[in-house]
Design a protein around this nucleic acid. Structure first.
Lengths: 255, 255
DNA sequence: CGACATGTTGAGATGGATCAACACTTGTGG
DNA sequence: CCACAAGTGTTGATCCATCTCAACATGTCG
């Protein structure tokens, strides 16, 4: 499936392009119908625009259908921390419902398409389709796992280790979605719409240091970022540097 | 309620000491009965012992009944990052079920008591009591919110800001449980069983720097840690330094 | 008593921050 | 068509928050 086909969210979940991907657990026709009824519509957000404002207590629930986005928090003087990157299939907005701490914002990196769900239908979903409720928990828990990893990077990894980790992590996630670009002369690659400022904010580094470290890894022949594409030239080395080894991939639920 | 009464987990949930606390949302007698049936027993772990080993794929689910513990990850050369601290009422082990990334370990700080639940009964719980399933999601989401905050600290706060944040955060959590020690001559305090190495590992700092920063805050008259007790002498200043302002507290579900 | 965990302090080293330029590209308005 | 601003990436120089190393104090416990 080309990612071109994923640009726009189709009106009916039955013809959902995402769901056809191998990465997601299949659902029964019943469940699919319920999800479609639960969904209140879809929405598009331009690159760079804010999907959910930091600290806004209300909002809807979303499934990211296409494009990249990120969750973030900022301190009052403007220092920003990206909490994690959001890729197609990610469920958005749960914490807004629950957290009693301060909230996070969500910003689109590329233009994105979202399936929208009403916040107050969630309990009903748990009631009517417990296994879908279970899936929501699955997704929440999986996302927490990603933040755990990010915290390990920010807290204990060096800049080079963190960057190696992030490149591997994002590459693998895109790869699992089946969106890896077929091998051209230089090998496989993925779309990589984030800039060095995003990387810096995700890892708790300064922009300048991020640039220098990225440059160093590039000169070591580990990777290449060009024209919005990421190519990994030596995943073995990157894994070793990041001290991160991939687990067998599992299918992920999709709401 | 004195925390003495919370030392041991009673055999029946009806007489659960935790549940009497104001901090938790009440449950119906039906739900309580179900929870009691779901619970397979309880367990004690000594201070310093490991509850769940890092990377162990299986395990049970727990509710921490009494004492302090923490979730952590380590890099292969031993660098350790504490992901968050666990206090009574926290639900433990969800990520073990779901995460496809590497897993975390859990270690007891004090002696702790745990209610044990079988991992494979969870889906059944979602089916039989959707609102309890909803609560599980609630708890997962709330925990993610805490990790989000920790990531903001590790990534973007200075050492002093991070420490101020952590002190406030832990104080407030204990306070919400109703475990604040009544005011003696020097004002209110909480039990504070963690040492400087724990603080360092939670914030991504070195032990030495943690000590010096803690000393500095103490000399500024902001707090005092002595005899395993934490006293905050100037919460206003701590909040300002940490750039963290408390939200109105909400009741938390308890499983 | 010694072993060990914990906290404290100083000295020196360094990873990463900050400041300051500059190059390149893209879009925009004149 | 050019002139210009804005966003992004690059690089060097310098600074400093934090790390590492090293020593010592204290308390607990067997």
């Amino acid at each position: 499936m080309s990612d071109q086909a994923l640009k726009h969210c189709p009106p009916a979940c039955v013809s959902c392009g995402l769901r056809k991907l191998d990465a997601f657990t299949p659902v029964t026709p019943d469940q699919l119908k319920y999800i479609e009824a639960f969904r209140s519509g879809f929405s598009q957000v331009d690159a760079g625009a804010t999907v959910i404002h930091e600290g806004s207590p209300n909002g809807k629930l979303f499934t990211l259908y296409s494009g990249w986005a990120f969750r973030y928090k900022t301190l009052s003087d403007g220092r920003r921390q990206i909490l994690n990157f959001l890729l197609p299939g990610d469920f958005i907005g749960l914490q807004q419902e629950f957290a009693d701490g301060a909230m996070h914002g969500i910003e689109a990196i590329t233009g994105i398409t979202l399936c929208v769900f009403p916040r107050d239908g969630l309990l009903e979903l748990f009631r009517d389709y417990p296994s879908l409720g279970f899936d929501v928990t699955w997704l929440a828990s999986r996302e927490e796992g990603m933040v755990d990893d990010a915290l390990l990077s920010a807290g204990r990894r060096t800049a080079a280790e963190s960057i190696a980790m992030l490149l591997m992590h994002l590459y693998r996630r895109v790869q699992r979605l089946g969106l890896e670009r077929g091998a051209d002369a230089e090998g496989a690659s993925i779309e990589f719409p984030i800039n060095q400022q995003h990387i810096a904010d995700a890892l708790g580094l300064s922009l300048v240091h991020t640039n220098k470290t990225l440059r160093r890894l590039h000169k070591l022949g580990l990777h290449e970022i060009r024209d919005g594409q990421l190519r990994l030239h030596n995943t073995r080395a990157l894994e070793r540097i990041a001290d991160y080894y991939d687990r067998p991939l599992r299918k992920v639920p999709l709401l």
